[in-house]
């Protein structure tokens, strides 16, 4: 069974102006699927729909065969720990008034008792925090700091640690590296690649950066104006049967 499957998903915010049109794709366990597209192509709306932060107009989103879409918040709750996200702006993902420890351990406090962990050792909150910091290669000293005392890259590592803390099946990465400089971008991509392997995660990786997409994903979808215009395995990016838009992107980046 597919981990995630989208069938004919349609979404609009204003009548007559579709943001997502006929979106069909699936994602397997331990796979990283990249979605590349320009600002305004609908890729973040797609992420929000999958995360159940937005409802759908039509179509279905199946998680291990179970429909997720248009469920009540109460019915969604058990799935939230399986479905985590890392967003673009690490500064706004962390509450500026809370210490890092507090923000990091929020999912664990919410769900920790009910969750059986396979990769992390189930322990006290302090023990969990230490393991998570180690997983994202940060010093545990940062736990007692406030977000403004951390660099952008460090904050993004905290967001990643929080997203993986309950060992979710799927992490939706919505432009996780776009607000970082290139060296930090690369270190974050490396970390994500390593964690996927170590914790058996699946990623839906959304970015406008074809280079990052090509580096991290196994399969790639190209979105334009709310539609998927091209789909291929990573190795086929330069193949001549690519869609003209994909070719245009390749020529811009190369």
């Amino acid at each position: 069974m597919r981990l995630l499957q989208l069938n004919d998903v349609q979404k609009s915010y204003q009548p007559g102006i579709p943001v997502l049109k006929d979106i069909n794709f699936s994602l397997d366990r331990k796979e990283c699927l990249g979605i590349v597209g320009e600002s305004g192509c609908g890729k973040s709306t797609l992420a929000r729909c999958i995360l159940q932060l937005e409802g759908l107009d039509q179509g279905e989103i199946l998680f291990e065969g179970t429909p997720l879409h248009n469920k009540t918040e109460r019915d969604i709750r058990p799935y939230r720990r399986q479905l985590q996200t890392v967003m673009q702006n690490p500064a706004s993902s962390l509450n500026p008034k809370l210490k890092i420890r507090h923000s990091l351990m929020e999912p664990f406090r919410q769900y920790g008792a009910q969750v059986s962990l396979t990769h992390f050792q189930h322990g006290s909150e302090e023990e969990m925090a230490r393991q998570l910091m180690e997983a994202v290669e940060l010093s545990p000293d940062l736990l007692s700091r406030y977000p403004h005392e951390l660099s952008g890259g460090q904050k993004q590592r905290i967001s990643i640690a929080r997203a993986i803390s309950l060992e979710p099946a799927l992490v939706v990465l919505d432009e996780p590296t776009s607000s970082l400089d290139v060296l930090t971008q690369m270190s974050i991509l490396k970390l994500l690649d390593h964690l996927r392997d170590a914790l058996d995660l699946s990623y839906l990786f959304i970015s406008h950066d074809l280079l990052a997409i090509q580096a991290l994903s196994q399969k790639i979808l190209v979105m334009k104006e709310g539609q998927i215009v091209d789909r291929f395995e990573k190795g086929d990016l330069f193949a001549h049967e690519r869609h003209p838009y994909t070719k245009q992107l390749v020529s811009l980046f190369d």
Partner: peptide, 25 residues
């Protein structure tokens, strides 16, 4: 330079151990 390779070298971007992370965070 390693952090911003050409597109065709992107697949190798995350492979191998390097010291560039010394400058990161």
């Amino acid at each position: 330079m390693t952090a911003s390779p050409s597109l065709s070298a992107a697949s190798q971007l995350l492979k191998g151990d390097d010291t560039s992370c010394v400058y990161c965070n």
